[in-house]
Nucleic acid binder design. Structure first.
Ligand SMILES: [Mn+2]
Ligand SMILES: [Mn+2]
Ligand SMILES: [Zn+2]
Ligand SMILES: [Zn+2]
Lengths: 147, 147
DNA sequence: AAGTAATTGCAAAAGATTTGCATTTAGAGT
DNA sequence: ACTCTAAATGCAAATCTTTTGCAATTACTT
């Protein structure tokens, strides 16, 4: 039997090890989904997308927790009543979400550095800024056409 | 007995009527708290701050819902497991939140218009952008000193 | 002053997240 | 390859957050 190496899996294993996390099948499966879907996913959707090897909800929550601490995922708030997560391995980027249908489009860049810097300079209380969120909301073409 | 008119209450009554909402004591009380605290509040805190005339949780949720639709409040996501709300009567502005202690500082301006415009221009799917969120996270001075 | 739709409170349901504990397992060390 | 251990998982229960149905109340129109 020939063992075929999977480039993607190798990458994830390394990613996890660098973060001093064990490379479990569960984690690899979750990372695959996040990579493939390429947009912020809720815990529930994440779980559904994995299919086969059912993963317990508590496990997914704990995973997102530790992934977040290690900088592997990023939490995204889309004004739903639950959090969404996406891979943080991609460069800093943002999204536009449709207020009607929930469609998400990528904004593949981030021009916020100067603004973040300005905010930090003016701040009395803060000595460092570690992170930022920036989300746009609007109406997508197909929802606009419906009216 | 002399009736003394309260400027602030008058203002809130007008605000509500303009939005075709009834000016109830409950709503006035909530608006007063939001005005006074001057920062994004969770439903639970909002309820506590009102003190005296206990307001039911469902009522507060429904209120935030309609206030949001009418543009009276704005929802703010601070990566807690619940939403925060603040008055939308203030000009567009943003916040820095301490990741350790949760302290919130105001950024009393918004320079994002050009970036929002650029995003809309480049977008394939969206014809209009109605709203945006921008939140900074960092470590505040006192939390930094503790280490 | 009366009439009505909007608002509220209460109780229950639904949804989201966290926790405790027993069991399993990845990976370090041999 | 085998052993050992801390880390990770599943399951059940607890907790926290948000929504809903319904009956009673109330702000405002006429
Ligand atoms: Mn969602
Ligand atoms: Mn909070
Ligand atoms: Zn950015
Ligand atoms: Zn802004």
């Amino acid at each position: 039997m020939i063992l075929i190496k999977d480039k993607q899996i190798d990458y994830f294993v390394t990613l996890l090890h660098k973060a001093s996390l064990k490379a479990t099948p569960t984690r690899i499966a979750v990372l695959k989904v996040l990579e493939k879907e390429h947009k912020p996913l809720s815990i529930a959707i994440l779980q559904k997308r994995i299919g086969e090897q059912k993963i317990d909800t508590a496990t997914v929550y704990r995973m997102m927790q530790s992934f977040q601490e290690k900088g592997i995922v990023r939490r995204v708030d889309l004004r739903h009543t639950h959090a969404h997560y996406e891979l943080a391995t991609r460069a800093d980027h943002h999204h536009i979400t449709c207020e009607r249908c929930g469609k998400i489009e990528d904004i593949p860049w981030c021009d916020l550095a100067p603004i973040v810097k300005k905010a930090l300079c003016q701040s009395v209380t803060f000595t460092q800024i570690t992170d930022h969120t920036f989300e746009l909301f609007g109406i997508c073409r197909s929802c606009a056409d419906e009216e």
